[in-house]
């Protein structure tokens, strides 16, 4: 008798537990928005976790932005509910000119958007050479939006693929005053730090910065075998 009571009470607890978590849970969002930040169809290189886009949805009580962080290769993704969204560039946030026009995003299942921006500078050509204990990067930059001037060009070395202003083992720069004509290829030389020298490989990247904008625009990182 006692055991039966025991079993019954246990059973009822199990039933309650199994039923308990039904109504009060919403399904997680399942739709996927992916995209890239592009200039003339080419994705732009950015600082990892540095640049943010914002997504707004009208028509609901809660009206606040959904921040979307852009990866260092210019791509982004967000898992959302289906619906109509507006994608906006955050003012002054990326290495491109402000544009207050929003981009309509109609999300059903999946959607992929290219966000066209108007960068101040882009990197059109880059190459790296190793000379002994030094890496020399040669880069050609091109001004696209002329409203801001060139501030500096920098080369970064890192141990992993993620290399930028905040994640680098070594860095060297040339300020705009030292560049006679930035339409010509610019050479940057940085010595390989001891922490990377014995690893056998490293990643190099070049960034260009316009005055008055916090973020650099980067080339895609390139692996160099030592």
């Amino acid at each position: 008798m006692k055991t039966i009571n025991y079993i019954y009470s246990l059973l009822s607890i199990v039933v309650i537990m199994a039923m308990g978590c039904e109504k009060d849970n919403f399904d997680a969002p399942t739709s996927m928005l992916t995209g890239r930040v592009v200039h003339q169809g080419q994705p732009l290189g950015l600082r990892s976790g540095g640049v943010q886009l914002e997504l707004w949805q009208h028509g609901y009580d809660l009206f606040s932005k959904i921040p979307i962080h852009v990866d260092q290769d210019g791509s982004f993704s967000a898992r959302l509910f289906d619906g109509n969204y507006k994608l906006v560039l955050l003012r002054g946030n990326g290495p491109w000119a402000d544009n207050t026009d929003s981009l309509d995003v109609n999300l059903k299942g999946t959607a992929s958007v290219d966000v066209p921006v108007d960068p101040y500078f882009i990197i059109t050509n880059q190459s790296f050479q190793r000379n002994g204990n030094e890496i020399t990067g040669t880069v050609t930059i091109q001004q696209v939006n002329t409203s801001r001037s060139l501030e500096r060009v920098a080369i970064y070395l890192g141990q992993t693929l993620i290399v930028d202003q905040n994640n680098s083992a070594a860095r060297a720069e040339v300020v705009s005053g030292a560049i006679a004509d930035f339409n010509q290829p610019i050479e940057l030389t940085v010595s390989i730090p001891a922490s990377l020298a014995d690893k056998g490989y490293l990643f190099a990247r070049i960034g260009v910065k316009a005055t008055g904008v916090a973020e650099y625009l980067y080339s895609q990182p390139q692996q160099i075998t030592l």
Binding site: F63, S64, K65, L90, R91, G92, N93, N166, A214
Partner: peptide, 29 residues
């Protein structure tokens, strides 16, 4: 320590802007 340009002025809560559309946002956010 990493202080970004958007830290020079703090962001205004979206609820405040929703209640008063005349409030303009601070730069960088």
């Amino acid at each position: 320590r990493f202080f970004q340009m958007g830290n020079y002025y703090s962001s205004i809560d979206q609820g405040v802007i929703n209640n008063n559309p005349k409030i303009v946002r601070n730069p960088f956010h």
